[in-house]
Amino acid sequence: MNATDREERHREERPEQPVERVSATEALRQASGQLAELLGRSPESVSALKPTEQGWTATVEVLELERVPETSSVMASYELVLGPDGRLLGYERARRYTRAQIDRNGR
C-alpha cells in the first residue's frame, strides 16, 4: 500500500468534520488580512460579497499605484474565493482602472 492509498483509507475511516460558516464580516476580515499579506497592500473597500455552497465570493478594491493627483491613482478589483471559515482559497485580479474612472456597462 503506497502513501496515497493510506491517505485515502485514512480519510474514509475519519470523515472530515464540516467547517462552520463564519459571518460575512468575519470572512472578509480574515480574507482581507490574507490578501494584504500576499499583495503587500491592504484592500480599500468591498464591492461585492456573495455566499456560495463552498463558502463565499467577494470583490475588493485595492490601491495598486498611488499618484498625484489622487484621481489618477491606479486601482484594481480582485475576485476572491473564500472557504466557509473565511480562509482565502484563491484570488484573481479582474481589472485595473484609475480612481476617477466611472463604471460603464456594469463594470
Rank of each mutant, 00 (worst) to 15 (best):
17 Q>K: 06
17 Q>F: 06
18 P>W: 02
19 V>N: 00
19 V>G: 04
20 E>K: 12
20 E>T: 08
21 R>Q: 07
22 V>A: 05
22 V>S: 04
22 V>M: 00
23 S>G: 12
23 S>C: 10
23 S>R: 01
23 S>D: 10
24 A>L: 13
24 A>N: 13
25 T>E: 13
25 T>D: 11
25 T>G: 11
25 T>R: 13
27 A>S: 11
27 A>F: 10
27 A>M: 09
28 L>C: 09
29 R>K: 14
29 R>F: 13
29 R>Y: 14
29 R>E: 13
30 Q>L: 15
30 Q>A: 13
30 Q>F: 14
30 Q>V: 15
31 A>Q: 01
32 S>W: 02
32 S>E: 04
33 G>D: 03
33 G>L: 10
34 Q>R: 03
34 Q>A: 14
36 A>D: 03
38 L>T: 06
38 L>S: 13
38 L>Y: 10
38 L>I: 05
39 L>V: 02
39 L>G: 00
42 S>L: 10
42 S>T: 11
43 P>I: 09
43 P>Q: 08
45 S>K: 04
46 V>Y: 05
46 V>H: 01
48 A>H: 06
49 L>P: 07
49 L>G: 14
49 L>S: 08
49 L>K: 07
49 L>W: 09
49 L>I: 08
51 P>K: 15
51 P>T: 15
51 P>I: 15
52 T>F: 15
53 E>W: 15
54 Q>R: 13
54 Q>I: 09
55 G>D: 04
55 G>C: 14
56 W>I: 10
56 W>Y: 15
56 W>Q: 06
57 T>N: 14
57 T>F: 08
58 A>C: 11
59 T>I: 13
59 T>G: 11
60 V>E: 01
60 V>A: 09
61 E>C: 12
62 V>L: 07
62 V>C: 08
63 L>W: 00
63 L>E: 00
63 L>H: 04
64 E>K: 08
65 L>T: 02
66 E>I: 04
67 R>W: 01
67 R>K: 06
67 R>Y: 02
68 V>A: 14
68 V>L: 14
68 V>I: 12
68 V>Q: 14
68 V>S: 06
69 P>Y: 04
72 S>V: 01
74 V>W: 11
75 M>F: 07
75 M>L: 11
77 S>D: 12
